[in-house]
Design a protein around this nucleic acid. Sequence first.
RNA 1: GGCCACGUGGCGGAGUGGUUACGCGACGGUCUGCAAAACCGUUUACUCCGGUUCAAUUCCGGACGUGGCCUCCA
Length: 488
Amino acid sequence: MTIRLHNTLTRQKEAFTPLDANNVRMYVCGPTVYDYAHIGNARPVIVFDVLYRLLRHTYGEKHVTYVRNITDIDDKINARAAEIAAAKNITVEEARVEITTRTTQQYFDDVTALGCLMPTHNPRATDYVHGMVAMIAALIAAGHAYEAEGHVLYDVSSKPDYGKLSRRSLDEMMAGARVEVAPYKKSPMDFVLWKPSDDLTPGWQSPWGRGRPGWHIECSVMGGALLGDSFDIHGGGVDLMFPHHENEIAQSEGAHHNHPLAQIWLHNGFLQVEGEKMSKSLGNFITINELLTTNKFGERHWPGAVLRMAMMMTHYRQPIDWTVSRLTEVYSFAVEFFLKTYGLSPSGNVSEELVSLLADDLNTPAAISYLHSLRISKAPSSAQELLDALSFLGLLFKREDFAKFLVLNKLAGGQNIASSTEDRAILREAVLSETGLLEEQIDAQIQARNAARKAKDFHESDRIRDVLLSQGIVLKDGPTGTTWEVKR
RNA sequence: GGCCACGUGGCGGAGUGGUUACGCGACGGUCUGCAAAACCGUUUACUCCGGUUCAAUUCCGGACGUGGCCUCCA
Protein backbone atom coordinates (compact mmCIF):
# COMPACT_ATOMS: atom_id res chain seq x y z
CA MET A 1 0.00 0.00 0.00
CA THR A 2 1.50 3.30 -1.09
CA ILE A 3 0.69 6.20 1.18
CA ARG A 4 0.25 9.47 -0.65
CA LEU A 5 0.44 12.77 1.22
CA HIS A 6 0.10 16.39 0.25
CA ASN A 7 3.49 17.99 0.85
CA THR A 8 3.39 21.70 1.66
CA LEU A 9 6.94 22.05 0.31
CA THR A 10 5.83 21.07 -3.19
CA ARG A 11 2.08 21.78 -2.86
CA GLN A 12 1.48 18.38 -4.40
CA LYS A 13 0.37 14.95 -3.40
CA GLU A 14 3.42 12.70 -3.27
CA ALA A 15 4.03 9.02 -2.77
CA PHE A 16 5.51 8.61 0.69
CA THR A 17 8.80 6.73 0.91
CA PRO A 18 10.34 6.65 4.36
CA LEU A 19 14.02 7.39 4.79
CA ASP A 20 14.20 4.19 6.86
CA ALA A 21 11.25 1.83 6.73
CA ASN A 22 12.42 0.31 10.01
CA ASN A 23 12.05 3.65 11.73
CA VAL A 24 9.49 5.98 10.23
CA ARG A 25 9.76 9.31 12.04
CA MET A 26 7.14 12.00 12.52
CA TYR A 27 7.22 15.23 14.50
CA VAL A 28 4.14 17.28 15.33
CA CYS A 29 4.06 20.60 17.14
CA GLY A 30 2.33 20.16 20.47
CA PRO A 31 0.68 22.47 22.96
CA THR A 32 1.93 25.36 24.99
CA VAL A 33 0.80 24.29 28.42
CA TYR A 34 -0.59 27.34 30.15
CA ASP A 35 -4.34 26.67 29.96
CA TYR A 36 -6.94 24.16 28.78
CA ALA A 37 -6.53 23.14 25.14
CA HIS A 38 -9.32 24.41 22.90
CA ILE A 39 -11.12 22.49 20.18
CA GLY A 40 -8.91 24.04 17.51
CA ASN A 41 -5.92 22.52 19.26
CA ALA A 42 -7.61 19.14 18.97
CA ARG A 43 -7.60 19.13 15.20
CA PRO A 44 -3.92 18.43 14.53
CA VAL A 45 -3.85 15.99 17.41
CA ILE A 46 -6.62 13.93 15.82
CA VAL A 47 -5.39 14.32 12.23
CA PHE A 48 -1.89 13.16 13.04
CA ASP A 49 -3.17 10.42 15.30
CA VAL A 50 -4.95 8.99 12.26
CA LEU A 51 -1.72 9.22 10.30
CA TYR A 52 0.19 7.61 13.17
CA ARG A 53 -2.26 4.70 13.14
CA LEU A 54 -1.92 4.36 9.38
CA LEU A 55 1.88 4.39 9.59
CA ARG A 56 1.88 1.81 12.39
CA HIS A 57 -0.37 -0.41 10.35
CA THR A 58 1.78 -0.03 7.23
CA TYR A 59 5.27 -0.26 8.72
CA GLY A 60 4.60 -2.05 12.01
CA GLU A 61 4.03 -0.61 15.46
CA LYS A 62 7.67 -0.94 16.42
CA HIS A 63 8.86 0.86 13.32
CA VAL A 64 7.20 4.24 13.78
CA THR A 65 8.45 6.98 16.08
CA TYR A 66 6.05 9.83 16.79
CA VAL A 67 7.24 12.88 18.69
CA ARG A 68 4.94 15.63 19.93
CA ASN A 69 6.48 18.27 22.11
CA ILE A 70 5.22 19.98 25.22
CA THR A 71 6.12 23.65 25.28
CA ASP A 72 6.65 24.58 28.90
CA ILE A 73 8.76 27.67 28.29
CA ASP A 74 6.73 30.58 27.07
CA ASP A 75 5.93 34.14 27.98
CA LYS A 76 2.22 33.40 28.40
CA ILE A 77 3.22 30.75 30.91
CA ASN A 78 5.55 33.20 32.56
CA ALA A 79 2.83 35.80 32.88
CA ARG A 80 0.50 33.25 34.45
CA ALA A 81 3.26 32.01 36.72
CA ALA A 82 3.98 35.53 37.95
CA GLU A 83 0.33 35.96 38.97
CA ILE A 84 0.22 32.66 40.80
CA ALA A 85 3.58 33.20 42.45
CA ALA A 86 2.35 36.49 43.86
CA ALA A 87 -0.96 35.04 45.00
CA LYS A 88 0.47 31.95 46.64
CA ASN A 89 3.73 33.45 47.81
CA ILE A 90 5.86 30.89 45.97
CA THR A 91 8.69 31.42 43.52
CA VAL A 92 8.01 32.05 39.86
CA GLU A 93 9.79 28.83 38.97
CA GLU A 94 7.63 26.85 41.41
CA ALA A 95 4.54 28.43 39.91
CA ARG A 96 5.73 27.67 36.38
CA VAL A 97 6.24 24.00 37.26
CA GLU A 98 2.83 23.85 38.91
CA ILE A 99 1.00 25.32 35.91
CA THR A 100 2.78 23.30 33.27
CA THR A 101 2.54 20.01 35.15
CA ARG A 102 -1.17 20.38 35.76
CA THR A 103 -1.93 21.60 32.25
CA THR A 104 0.13 18.86 30.62
CA GLN A 105 -1.81 16.19 32.50
CA GLN A 106 -5.08 17.84 31.54
CA TYR A 107 -3.99 17.86 27.91
CA PHE A 108 -3.13 14.16 27.98
CA ASP A 109 -6.47 13.36 29.58
CA ASP A 110 -8.38 15.43 27.02
CA VAL A 111 -6.73 14.00 23.92
CA THR A 112 -6.97 10.47 25.29
CA ALA A 113 -10.71 11.02 25.58
CA LEU A 114 -10.61 11.96 21.89
CA GLY A 115 -9.29 8.51 21.09
CA CYS A 116 -5.71 9.55 20.44
CA LEU A 117 -2.79 7.24 21.10
CA MET A 118 0.13 8.53 23.11
CA PRO A 119 3.06 9.53 20.90
CA THR A 120 6.30 7.63 21.32
CA HIS A 121 7.86 10.68 22.97
CA ASN A 122 6.38 13.81 24.59
CA PRO A 123 9.52 15.89 25.19
CA ARG A 124 9.33 18.96 27.39
CA ALA A 125 11.21 22.03 26.25
CA THR A 126 12.71 22.58 29.69
CA ASP A 127 14.53 19.27 29.42
CA TYR A 128 16.30 20.42 26.26
CA VAL A 129 17.57 23.90 27.14
CA HIS A 130 21.15 22.65 27.07
CA GLY A 131 20.62 21.39 23.52
CA MET A 132 19.08 24.70 22.54
CA VAL A 133 22.10 26.60 23.81
CA ALA A 134 24.34 24.23 21.86
CA MET A 135 22.35 24.67 18.65
CA ILE A 136 22.37 28.45 19.00
CA ALA A 137 26.13 28.37 19.49
CA ALA A 138 26.45 26.21 16.39
CA LEU A 139 24.33 28.65 14.40
CA ILE A 140 26.56 31.53 15.50
CA ALA A 141 29.63 29.51 14.53
CA ALA A 142 28.13 28.72 11.14
CA GLY A 143 27.43 32.39 10.47
CA HIS A 144 23.65 32.05 10.69
CA ALA A 145 23.18 33.97 13.93
CA TYR A 146 24.53 36.95 15.81
CA GLU A 147 24.43 38.36 19.32
CA ALA A 148 23.02 41.81 19.95
CA GLU A 149 22.14 43.50 23.26
CA GLY A 150 21.84 40.23 25.15
CA HIS A 151 19.74 38.65 22.42
CA VAL A 152 20.81 36.13 19.87
CA LEU A 153 19.12 36.55 16.50
CA TYR A 154 18.91 34.39 13.42
CA ASP A 155 20.24 36.16 10.34
CA VAL A 156 17.71 35.28 7.65
CA SER A 157 19.91 36.74 4.92
CA SER A 158 22.38 33.93 5.62
CA LYS A 159 19.96 31.34 4.26
CA PRO A 160 19.14 32.00 0.60
CA ASP A 161 16.19 29.61 0.53
CA TYR A 162 14.53 31.15 3.60
CA GLY A 163 10.80 31.25 2.87
CA LYS A 164 10.69 28.09 0.77
CA LEU A 165 7.96 26.44 2.85
CA SER A 166 5.52 29.34 2.97
CA ARG A 167 6.65 30.59 -0.46
CA ARG A 168 7.38 34.08 0.65
CA SER A 169 10.33 36.12 -0.41
CA LEU A 170 12.19 38.33 2.02
CA ASP A 171 11.46 41.34 -0.16
CA GLU A 172 7.73 40.72 -0.10
CA MET A 173 7.69 40.23 3.64
CA MET A 174 9.68 43.34 4.37
CA ALA A 175 7.51 45.37 2.04
CA GLY A 176 4.39 44.19 3.83
CA ALA A 177 5.77 44.31 7.34
CA ARG A 178 3.60 46.23 9.75
CA VAL A 179 5.35 45.59 13.01
CA GLU A 180 7.88 47.82 14.59
CA VAL A 181 11.35 46.45 14.27
CA ALA A 182 13.57 46.06 17.30
CA PRO A 183 16.58 48.35 16.83
CA TYR A 184 19.13 45.60 17.42
CA LYS A 185 17.92 43.55 14.44
CA LYS A 186 20.04 43.60 11.31
CA SER A 187 16.99 42.81 9.22
CA PRO A 188 13.32 43.18 10.17
CA MET A 189 12.78 39.47 9.48
CA ASP A 190 15.54 38.26 11.79
CA PHE A 191 14.02 36.32 14.66
CA VAL A 192 14.98 35.64 18.24
CA LEU A 193 16.88 32.51 19.25
CA TRP A 194 17.68 33.61 22.79
CA LYS A 195 16.53 36.52 24.89
CA PRO A 196 17.54 37.83 28.30
CA SER A 197 15.42 37.19 31.41
CA ASP A 198 15.11 39.54 34.34
CA ASP A 199 15.14 38.24 37.92
CA LEU A 200 11.38 37.72 38.00
CA THR A 201 11.31 35.69 34.77
CA PRO A 202 12.35 32.05 34.46
CA GLY A 203 15.79 31.84 32.90
CA TRP A 204 18.77 29.60 32.26
CA GLN A 205 22.47 30.29 32.16
CA SER A 206 24.02 30.65 28.74
CA PRO A 207 27.11 32.10 27.06
CA TRP A 208 24.95 35.19 26.43
CA GLY A 209 23.86 35.61 30.03
CA ARG A 210 20.83 34.40 31.94
CA GLY A 211 17.93 34.11 29.56
CA ARG A 212 15.40 31.93 27.80
CA PRO A 213 15.03 30.48 24.33
CA GLY A 214 12.96 31.92 21.52
CA TRP A 215 9.84 30.21 20.35
CA HIS A 216 11.10 28.15 17.43
CA ILE A 217 14.37 26.70 18.66
CA GLU A 218 12.82 24.09 20.96
CA CYS A 219 11.22 22.19 18.08
CA SER A 220 14.45 22.18 16.10
CA VAL A 221 16.33 20.79 19.08
CA MET A 222 13.80 18.23 20.25
CA GLY A 223 13.15 17.00 16.74
CA GLY A 224 16.86 16.68 16.11
CA ALA A 225 17.55 14.96 19.41
CA LEU A 226 14.81 12.35 19.09
CA LEU A 227 14.48 11.89 15.33
CA GLY A 228 17.83 12.95 13.88
CA ASP A 229 18.88 15.76 11.57
CA SER A 230 16.49 14.60 8.84
CA PHE A 231 13.24 12.78 9.37
CA ASP A 232 10.15 11.85 7.40
CA ILE A 233 7.13 13.91 8.35
CA HIS A 234 6.61 17.19 10.13
CA GLY A 235 3.08 18.30 10.94
CA GLY A 236 1.14 21.14 12.49
CA GLY A 237 -1.57 23.72 11.87
CA VAL A 238 -1.44 26.04 8.84
CA ASP A 239 -1.00 29.00 11.10
CA LEU A 240 2.36 27.58 12.13
CA MET A 241 3.64 27.44 8.58
CA PHE A 242 4.90 30.94 8.92
CA PRO A 243 6.85 31.90 10.86
CA HIS A 244 7.22 28.90 13.13
CA HIS A 245 7.95 26.12 10.65
CA GLU A 246 9.86 28.38 8.32
CA ASN A 247 12.13 29.35 11.19
CA GLU A 248 12.42 25.79 12.36
CA ILE A 249 13.72 24.85 8.93
CA ALA A 250 16.15 27.76 8.95
CA GLN A 251 17.53 26.76 12.35
CA SER A 252 17.74 23.02 11.84
CA GLU A 253 19.13 23.15 8.37
CA GLY A 254 21.49 25.95 9.32
CA ALA A 255 22.85 23.92 12.22
CA HIS A 256 22.86 20.60 10.34
CA HIS A 257 24.85 21.44 7.21
CA ASN A 258 21.67 22.05 5.21
CA HIS A 259 20.37 18.50 5.55
CA PRO A 260 16.63 18.83 4.82
CA LEU A 261 14.74 18.86 8.09
CA ALA A 262 11.70 16.86 6.97
CA GLN A 263 10.78 15.12 3.73
CA ILE A 264 7.13 15.95 3.95
CA TRP A 265 5.42 18.85 5.66
CA LEU A 266 1.74 18.49 6.48
CA HIS A 267 -0.56 21.29 7.58
CA ASN A 268 -4.08 20.96 8.82
CA GLY A 269 -6.67 23.64 8.06
CA PHE A 270 -8.19 26.09 10.46
CA LEU A 271 -11.29 25.65 12.55
CA GLN A 272 -14.10 28.14 12.94
CA VAL A 273 -16.97 28.02 15.40
CA GLU A 274 -20.47 28.61 14.00
CA GLY A 275 -18.99 30.48 11.05
CA GLU A 276 -16.80 32.78 13.08
CA LYS A 277 -13.24 32.80 14.19
CA MET A 278 -12.97 31.36 17.66
CA SER A 279 -11.91 33.99 20.12
CA LYS A 280 -12.47 34.85 23.71
CA SER A 281 -13.81 38.27 22.79
CA LEU A 282 -16.55 36.80 20.60
CA GLY A 283 -17.54 34.50 23.43
CA ASN A 284 -17.33 31.38 21.26
CA PHE A 285 -14.09 30.09 22.70
CA ILE A 286 -14.56 26.45 23.56
CA THR A 287 -12.15 23.98 25.14
CA ILE A 288 -11.96 20.24 24.61
CA ASN A 289 -12.75 19.73 28.23
CA GLU A 290 -15.86 21.92 28.11
CA LEU A 291 -17.18 19.90 25.17
CA LEU A 292 -16.52 16.66 27.04
CA THR A 293 -17.85 17.62 30.44
CA THR A 294 -20.12 20.67 30.28
CA ASN A 295 -23.30 21.77 28.51
CA LYS A 296 -21.73 24.96 27.20
CA PHE A 297 -21.89 23.97 23.52
CA GLY A 298 -25.27 22.78 22.30
CA GLU A 299 -26.70 22.36 25.79
CA ARG A 300 -25.27 18.91 26.23
CA HIS A 301 -21.88 17.34 26.68
CA TRP A 302 -20.36 15.25 23.94
CA PRO A 303 -18.64 11.88 24.02
CA GLY A 304 -15.02 12.07 22.87
CA ALA A 305 -15.63 9.73 19.94
CA VAL A 306 -18.36 12.05 18.66
CA LEU A 307 -15.95 14.99 18.71
CA ARG A 308 -13.36 12.87 16.94
CA MET A 309 -15.75 11.74 14.25
CA ALA A 310 -17.02 15.29 13.74
CA MET A 311 -13.42 16.28 13.12
CA MET A 312 -12.79 13.37 10.75
CA MET A 313 -15.85 14.21 8.68
CA THR A 314 -13.85 16.97 6.99
CA HIS A 315 -10.58 16.42 5.13
CA TYR A 316 -7.68 17.68 7.23
CA ARG A 317 -6.59 20.39 4.81
CA GLN A 318 -10.04 21.93 4.41
CA PRO A 319 -11.35 24.57 6.76
CA ILE A 320 -13.87 23.18 9.21
CA ASP A 321 -16.86 24.91 10.71
CA TRP A 322 -17.45 23.55 14.19
CA THR A 323 -21.19 23.74 14.80
CA VAL A 324 -23.78 22.27 17.10
CA SER A 325 -25.72 20.91 14.14
CA ARG A 326 -22.64 19.05 12.96
CA LEU A 327 -22.16 17.45 16.35
CA THR A 328 -25.84 16.60 16.55
CA GLU A 329 -25.70 14.82 13.21
CA VAL A 330 -22.61 12.88 14.22
CA TYR A 331 -24.14 12.00 17.55
CA SER A 332 -27.04 10.25 15.85
CA PHE A 333 -24.61 8.20 13.74
CA ALA A 334 -22.70 7.37 16.86
CA VAL A 335 -25.81 5.89 18.45
CA GLU A 336 -26.38 3.74 15.37
CA PHE A 337 -22.76 2.60 15.29
CA PHE A 338 -22.90 1.74 18.96
CA LEU A 339 -26.12 -0.23 18.70
CA LYS A 340 -25.00 -2.12 15.62
CA THR A 341 -21.72 -3.18 17.20
CA TYR A 342 -23.04 -3.71 20.72
CA GLY A 343 -21.82 -6.91 22.32
CA LEU A 344 -18.95 -7.47 19.87
CA SER A 345 -15.24 -7.13 20.50
CA PRO A 346 -12.69 -5.80 18.00
CA SER A 347 -10.95 -8.62 16.18
CA GLY A 348 -7.90 -6.60 15.21
CA ASN A 349 -8.58 -7.12 11.52
CA VAL A 350 -8.06 -4.07 9.35
CA SER A 351 -9.89 -3.65 6.07
CA GLU A 352 -7.65 -3.01 3.09
CA GLU A 353 -10.38 -0.87 1.61
CA LEU A 354 -10.32 1.37 4.64
CA VAL A 355 -6.53 1.54 4.61
CA SER A 356 -6.49 2.49 0.95
CA LEU A 357 -8.87 5.37 1.64
CA LEU A 358 -6.65 6.71 4.38
CA ALA A 359 -3.53 6.11 2.31
CA ASP A 360 -4.86 8.64 -0.17
CA ASP A 361 -3.79 11.73 1.76
CA LEU A 362 -5.84 10.77 4.82
CA ASN A 363 -9.25 10.82 3.18
CA THR A 364 -11.15 10.53 6.42
CA PRO A 365 -14.48 11.70 4.92
CA ALA A 366 -14.31 8.74 2.55
CA ALA A 367 -13.50 6.56 5.56
CA ILE A 368 -16.65 7.83 7.26
CA SER A 369 -18.60 6.92 4.12
CA TYR A 370 -17.12 3.46 4.38
CA LEU A 371 -18.45 3.27 7.94
CA HIS A 372 -21.89 4.22 6.71
CA SER A 373 -21.84 1.52 4.07
CA LEU A 374 -21.18 -1.04 6.83
CA ARG A 375 -23.82 0.51 9.06
CA ILE A 376 -26.43 0.11 6.33
CA SER A 377 -25.23 -3.28 5.14
CA LYS A 378 -27.30 -6.33 5.97
CA ALA A 379 -24.41 -8.72 5.49
CA PRO A 380 -23.94 -10.83 8.63
CA SER A 381 -20.27 -9.85 8.86
CA SER A 382 -20.96 -6.12 8.59
CA ALA A 383 -21.32 -5.52 12.32
CA GLN A 384 -17.93 -7.01 13.10
CA GLU A 385 -16.36 -5.23 10.15
CA LEU A 386 -17.87 -1.99 11.35
CA LEU A 387 -16.48 -2.41 14.83
CA ASP A 388 -13.05 -3.28 13.45
CA ALA A 389 -13.10 -0.19 11.24
CA LEU A 390 -14.21 2.02 14.14
CA SER A 391 -11.51 0.52 16.28
CA PHE A 392 -8.82 1.17 13.70
CA LEU A 393 -9.94 4.77 13.37
CA GLY A 394 -9.92 5.29 17.13
CA LEU A 395 -13.70 5.71 17.20
CA LEU A 396 -14.74 3.58 20.10
CA PHE A 397 -18.06 4.56 21.54
CA LYS A 398 -17.98 4.06 25.25
CA ARG A 399 -20.65 2.01 26.89
CA GLU A 400 -21.23 4.52 29.64
CA ASP A 401 -22.01 7.19 27.04
CA PHE A 402 -24.41 5.12 24.96
CA ALA A 403 -25.84 2.33 27.10
CA LYS A 404 -28.92 4.45 27.74
CA PHE A 405 -29.89 3.87 24.11
CA LEU A 406 -29.95 0.11 24.47
CA VAL A 407 -33.59 -0.73 24.06
CA LEU A 408 -35.10 -2.71 26.86
CA ASN A 409 -37.47 -4.89 24.90
CA LYS A 410 -38.81 -6.57 27.97
CA LEU A 411 -42.38 -6.56 26.78
CA ALA A 412 -41.62 -7.35 23.16
CA GLY A 413 -38.70 -9.69 23.56
CA GLY A 414 -36.97 -8.15 20.58
CA GLN A 415 -33.46 -7.15 19.74
CA ASN A 416 -30.78 -4.80 21.01
CA ILE A 417 -31.34 -5.79 24.58
CA ALA A 418 -28.78 -4.66 27.09
CA SER A 419 -27.39 -8.12 27.56
CA SER A 420 -25.34 -7.89 30.73
CA THR A 421 -26.56 -7.09 34.18
CA GLU A 422 -24.01 -4.32 34.27
CA ASP A 423 -25.33 -2.73 31.08
CA ARG A 424 -28.88 -3.01 32.34
CA ALA A 425 -27.85 -1.23 35.52
CA ILE A 426 -26.17 1.55 33.49
CA LEU A 427 -29.28 1.84 31.35
CA ARG A 428 -31.63 2.01 34.35
CA GLU A 429 -29.52 4.65 36.01
CA ALA A 430 -29.21 6.74 32.84
CA VAL A 431 -32.92 6.54 32.15
CA LEU A 432 -33.74 7.49 35.72
CA SER A 433 -31.41 10.49 35.70
CA GLU A 434 -32.61 11.74 32.30
CA THR A 435 -36.34 11.09 32.65
CA GLY A 436 -37.00 10.53 36.32
CA LEU A 437 -38.64 7.23 35.42
CA LEU A 438 -37.96 3.69 36.51
CA GLU A 439 -38.08 0.91 33.98
CA GLU A 440 -41.09 -0.60 35.76
CA GLN A 441 -43.01 2.67 35.54
CA ILE A 442 -42.36 2.88 31.81
CA ASP A 443 -43.49 -0.71 31.34
CA ALA A 444 -46.67 0.03 33.32
CA GLN A 445 -47.43 3.03 31.12
CA ILE A 446 -46.88 0.98 27.99
CA GLN A 447 -49.23 -1.68 29.25
CA ALA A 448 -51.85 0.92 30.12
CA ARG A 449 -51.50 2.40 26.65
CA ASN A 450 -51.81 -0.94 24.95
CA ALA A 451 -54.94 -1.67 26.97
CA ALA A 452 -56.40 1.65 25.82
CA ARG A 453 -55.50 0.86 22.24
CA LYS A 454 -57.17 -2.48 22.49
CA ALA A 455 -60.29 -0.73 23.77
CA LYS A 456 -59.95 1.73 20.86
CA ASP A 457 -59.58 4.60 23.32
CA PHE A 458 -57.03 6.34 21.13
CA HIS A 459 -57.38 9.62 22.94
CA GLU A 460 -56.05 7.97 26.08
CA SER A 461 -53.37 5.93 24.31
CA ASP A 462 -52.02 9.02 22.53
CA ARG A 463 -52.05 10.95 25.79
CA ILE A 464 -49.88 8.33 27.45
CA ARG A 465 -47.51 8.32 24.50
CA ASP A 466 -47.22 12.11 24.57
CA VAL A 467 -46.57 12.18 28.29
CA LEU A 468 -43.79 9.64 27.95
CA LEU A 469 -42.33 11.59 25.03
CA SER A 470 -42.31 14.76 27.09
CA GLN A 471 -40.34 12.83 29.69
CA GLY A 472 -37.82 11.75 27.06
CA ILE A 473 -39.09 8.26 26.24
CA VAL A 474 -39.91 7.38 22.63
CA LEU A 475 -42.29 4.50 21.99
CA LYS A 476 -42.02 2.27 18.97
CA ASP A 477 -44.77 -0.13 17.99
CA GLY A 478 -43.34 -3.15 16.23
CA PRO A 479 -44.87 -6.36 14.95
CA THR A 480 -44.00 -8.13 18.19
CA GLY A 481 -45.08 -5.39 20.55
CA THR A 482 -44.11 -1.99 21.86
CA THR A 483 -40.55 -1.05 22.66
CA TRP A 484 -39.06 2.16 23.94
CA GLU A 485 -35.83 4.04 23.98
CA VAL A 486 -34.42 7.24 25.37
CA LYS A 487 -35.02 10.15 23.05
CA ARG A 488 -31.87 10.80 21.03
C1' G B 1 -1.18 46.78 1.89
C1' G B 2 1.90 41.99 0.78
C1' C B 3 1.62 36.73 0.63
C1' C B 4 -0.98 31.84 1.02
C1' A B 5 -5.29 28.80 0.82
C1' C B 6 -10.30 27.79 -0.32
C1' G B 7 -15.39 28.55 -3.08
C1' U B 8 -19.55 21.48 -4.91
C1' G B 9 -27.07 20.25 -4.49
C1' G B 10 -31.54 22.70 1.40
C1' C B 11 -27.15 21.21 4.79
C1' G B 12 -22.47 18.36 5.73
C1' G B 13 -18.86 16.52 2.42
C1' A B 14 -15.52 13.31 -1.19
C1' G B 15 -14.03 13.02 -6.10
C1' U B 16 -13.21 13.39 -11.32
C1' G B 17 -10.94 16.05 -18.43
C1' G B 18 -16.28 12.60 -20.69
C1' U B 19 -19.71 7.49 -17.11
C1' U B 20 -21.35 12.98 -11.97
C1' A B 21 -19.70 9.35 -4.17
C1' C B 22 -21.63 9.14 0.58
C1' G B 23 -24.42 10.98 4.87
C1' C B 24 -28.27 14.27 6.82
C1' G B 25 -32.73 16.64 5.55
C1' A B 26 -36.96 16.84 2.41
C1' C B 27 -40.62 14.35 -0.48
C1' G B 28 -43.41 9.73 -2.03
C1' G B 29 -44.65 4.65 -0.74
C1' U B 30 -45.14 0.14 2.56
C1' C B 31 -46.41 -0.51 7.59
C1' U B 32 -49.60 1.82 11.64
C1' G B 33 -56.01 3.38 14.68
C1' C B 34 -52.77 7.83 13.93
C1' A B 35 -47.81 8.57 14.68
C1' A B 36 -42.81 7.20 15.64
C1' A B 37 -39.31 3.59 14.20
C1' A B 38 -38.06 0.41 10.27
C1' C B 39 -37.91 -0.76 5.12
C1' C B 40 -38.35 0.70 -0.27
C1' G B 41 -38.02 4.70 -3.63
C1' U B 42 -37.31 9.93 -5.40
C1' U B 43 -34.38 14.36 -5.03
C1' U B 44 -28.49 15.97 -9.20
C1' A B 45 -24.77 20.39 -7.67
C1' C B 46 -20.05 22.02 -8.82
C1' U B 47 -19.28 31.21 -7.48
C1' C B 48 -18.89 34.31 -12.04
C1' C B 49 -16.28 35.68 -16.75
C1' G B 50 -12.78 34.35 -20.35
C1' G B 51 -9.13 30.65 -22.41
C1' U B 52 -7.18 25.53 -23.73
C1' U B 53 -9.89 21.06 -25.51
C1' C B 54 -13.89 17.01 -29.58
C1' A B 55 -15.33 17.56 -24.30
C1' A B 56 -14.18 21.38 -17.91
C1' U B 57 -17.21 21.21 -12.06
C1' U B 58 -12.17 19.07 -12.88
C1' C B 59 -6.47 22.39 -16.45
C1' C B 60 -4.92 27.95 -17.24
C1' G B 61 -5.98 33.36 -16.50
C1' G B 62 -9.02 37.10 -14.34
C1' A B 63 -13.08 38.88 -11.17
C1' C B 64 -15.83 38.40 -6.81
C1' G B 65 -16.39 36.13 -2.03
C1' U B 66 -14.57 33.61 2.47
C1' G B 67 -10.61 32.25 5.61
C1' G B 68 -5.41 32.28 7.18
C1' C B 69 -0.49 34.42 7.87
C1' C B 70 2.60 38.89 8.08
C1' U B 71 1.03 40.39 15.65
C1' C B 72 5.56 33.87 19.59
C1' C B 73 -2.98 31.73 18.17
C1' A B 74 -3.15 24.66 16.10
